[in-house]
Design a protein around this nucleic acid. Sequence first.
DNA 1: TAGCCTTAACTTGTATACATGAGGACAAAG
DNA 2: CTTTGTCCTCATGTATACAAGTTAAGGCTA
Lengths: 243, 243
Amino acid sequence: MAGLERTSTHAQRALITLRKRILGGAYPGGTRLFEVALAEDLGISRTPVRDALQRLGAEGLLDRAPAGGFVVRGFAVRDVVDTIELRGVLEGTAARLAAERGVSADHLAQARSILHQIDALFLVQSFDMEAYSNFNTQFHHLLAQLSQSAVLIREIDRITALPFASPSAFLDDQSRQAELVKTLSAAQGQHRALIEAIEAREGFRAESLAREHARAARRNVEFLLSHEAALREGVQSLAILSS
Amino acid sequence: MAGLERTSTHAQRALITLRKRILGGAYPGGTRLFEVALAEDLGISRTPVRDALQRLGAEGLLDRAPAGGFVVRGFAVRDVVDTIELRGVLEGTAARLAAERGVSADHLAQARSILHQIDALFLVQSFDMEAYSNFNTQFHHLLAQLSQSAVLIREIDRITALPFASPSAFLDDQSRQAELVKTLSAAQGQHRALIEAIEAREGFRAESLAREHARAARRNVEFLLSHEAALREGVQSLAILSS
DNA sequence: TAGCCTTAACTTGTATACATGAGGACAAAG
DNA sequence: CTTTGTCCTCATGTATACAAGTTAAGGCTA
């Protein structure tokens, strides 16, 4: 899994490498990243490094220093919570718009198909977390599509790109499997209700449900952080947190 | 007002120039921007042009072409409407959070001060639109601050940077001054109610009011677009619209 | 004639040398 | 001892030459 990214350009590889480092907590929030140092480190010239830094800035992982240059953005607990809350608000808006504007039969069928496949996962003995994660991601992606708002889809994608704000964050927490499955079962209930509300054109209900659905993730973070480091260790998405 | 930007770097100047051109509709949506051509045109090398293009991409004015390069993003009427709606949702969230989390006496005083200054504008014979625009921008900026959510503030700033989505868009429409002032008077009523709701910790009301407040802008766009080109001419913010 | 392959033109990707400007250290003067 | 000014250092800004990849056109073949 390490360092073998073989995409086409140096800039792409630098982007991937640096993103991984930042998200992995390799650079504490506030650290300034110097082009020359990184270029030497990565064995490439400054040009693609610059490119990668600018992209990371656009992703929201770096801030531009006033006098030029980039600084690693620090994420406090509050920022994580606020970002998840924001995702809830945006997905809520997507759900409301879907209900208000109406969804096509095809889209509805897709949603039902995903729901059905998730249902099936709960019937098997050993829960397949990776499969759930995939279907869950699909579901949330589809939800954005249902809004029929290109603008909204774009913003949801942006926010969701931050790993700790993604709908499938915290699913890699190995230590609490059994408990987690129960939570996911409840989440699936919300998925169903959400589609039901959208189909019935109940905009307000759809919006409320989507927001509450995001709260599950928020509760998860708050739980993980209220218990000492032991629990946090297994959760990759929280490595970036500035203590 | 034209072309004399004397900021420090070439990249900055290129950014400003290109942004102005794009927003002014100089490049129809879908137009591909070539680095060399722009560099020659602007009399600088490709490097700062590249920089400017990347920033414009981050601003959402350009899309990255799959095989590299940048394409001017086309904004349809629906995109403009959706973006304004999104601003309403985000500002609504800011208002709700402000109500739920509470605001400091100092912030409240600032809000009241702005409201008071706007009130004063309505007492003068010839309405000072520029002053209103400034105070209005201040008010909306403060509203974001009240949320005490750095994440939300950042996103609101992002969206608001698109000129047709800014709270003070469409105020440069010279042709309907008298009518516009009436609208703004109503808007000021919403401003007041909004602060009132926040102070009373009425989160739901605050959120609803902020959303409805944004609807005024949406109605304005829809009105301008339902009447033929004559009206649109005076409205700079709509130049970018792809026919 | 249709389809494919080759090739050439064009565009972005990369390296590197040089320019510019910001920030800090050190010294001198008050 | 503090403050201010200058100089030096180092990081980013810029230009340009060259590399590499993409696209489209033209001709060849079936």
